[in-house]
């Protein structure tokens, strides 16, 4: 028998009762005697599995239920219905062996002790997670090298920049060498260079340790570069589970061609290749159906004022916007991905 799935989610649901009242004093007084509650279905009947060592991107608009799902998988929230198993453990039982095998990094929250240097948090985690001296020294050495922690470990956390803090957060979260990483917006607020550092670090950790990664991020570049597979949820329901290129193809079947001009460009000649998305004296972006791509590119390369040409997929943000604004589920390639509603 092979090792258990890293993540196994079956018909998972979570509902909240939320107290609701209009603003104002009168409403506040009324609510003392008659409280109105609204039921929020944060996650509904969600099912998916993840194999050990996979890197999976968890996508969805704000309020889709991504963080709620991650919190249920980490054992912080108790599901209303359904079942989750992480490497065979039931998360809500929060057994010590389970908690030692996972980590949850939330980009907007911190586990570092605010007024003490990160080194103190590392020491505390070593004791709590029972990391041996040898493993601690080795892992910390590795993390220090990968994340360049040397100088910042001994400064009080409150004096670190956001990027420095996030690097230390990652180190604190990984000192016990977890096999499953739940990363909720790990690059939020970081500059582009730091996003790249964090992204590369996550990839290296995954490859070096064979750890499973479940990642949510508003930065589509994080997901595109890190996650061969994406799970899309919207309003708590699964919308898509499969690889990213198939999702993009199904939602946005056109390609984008970016052109750079040398000399005066003829707009009409360019427009004959496809729909113009953007056009100025030096550049243009055209949208072209995939089936017409070969012919259109041939036409464009024949234009004397075209100096350079790049073929790209439409920006992922745009694809996602289109997916979530559509009233019905997307029609993804059946062989590459699974549409939740049709599965």
């Amino acid at each position: 028998m092979s090792s258990p799935l890293a993540v196994e989610v079956r018909a998972l649901s979570k509902t909240y009762e939320v107290h609701e009242r209009p603003p104002g004093l009168a409403a506040a007084l009324r609510s003392v005697f008659r409280r109105k509650y609204k039921t929020i279905h944060a996650v509904s009947d969600l099912s998916f599995t993840v194999e050990p060592g996979e890197r999976v991107g968890f996508l969805g608009p704000n309020g889709a239920g991504k963080t709620t799902t991650l919190k249920m998988l980490a054992g912080l929230l108790h599901p209303t219905a359904g079942e989750a198993r992480i490497a065979g453990y039931v998360p809500r039982r929060r057994e010590a062996a389970f908690l030692k095998s996972i980590t949850l990094v939330m980009g907007q929250k911190q586990q570092l002790l605010w007024d003490l240097p990160p080194a103190d948090t590392f020491t505390m985690n070593r004791a709590i997670y029972e990391v041996s001296d040898a493993d601690f020294a080795e892992t910390l050495g590795e993390l220090t090298e990968l994340l360049d922690l040397g100088a910042i470990m001994k400064k009080p956390t409150r004096q670190l920049s956001l990027g420095e803090r996030m690097k230390c957060e990652l180190a604190a979260a990984l000192l016990h060498r977890p096999q499953l990483l739940f990363l909720d917006e790990p690059t939020i607020g970081l500059d582009v260079a730091m996003q790249l550092t964090v992204r590369e670090f996550i990839r290296q950790y995954n490859e070096r340790r064979g750890a499973t990664v479940l990642l949510t991020s508003h930065y589509m570049d994080d997901v595109a570069s890190l996650c061969p597979r994406v799970v899309v949820i919207d309003q708590g329901r699964l919308r898509y589970d499969g690889d990213l290129p198939s999702l993009v193809r199904s939602i946005q079947p056109d390609k984008r061609v970016a052109l750079r001009f040398s000399g005066s460009a003829d707009r009409e000649a360019v427009a004959r290749a496809g729909t113009i998305v953007d056009f100025d004296a030096a550049h243009a972006v055209i949208q072209i159906p995939r089936v017409d791509l070969r012919e259109a590119v041939g036409h464009l390369l024949g234009l004397s004022f075209v100096a350079d040409l790049t073929i790209e997929d439409p920006p992922l943000e745009e694809v996602m916007r289109e997916l979530f604004s559509a009233s019905k589920p997307a029609e993804a390639d059946a062989d590459a991905g699974t549409q939740a509603d049709s599965a």
């Binding site: 054992g75 949850l104 709590i128 997670y129």
Partner: peptide, 16 residues
Amino acid sequence: GTLSRRLLRPIHPLIT
């Protein structure tokens, strides 16, 4: 919600 960070550790929050 910051109790989460304690609940994620393999030691009872009341101990910490």
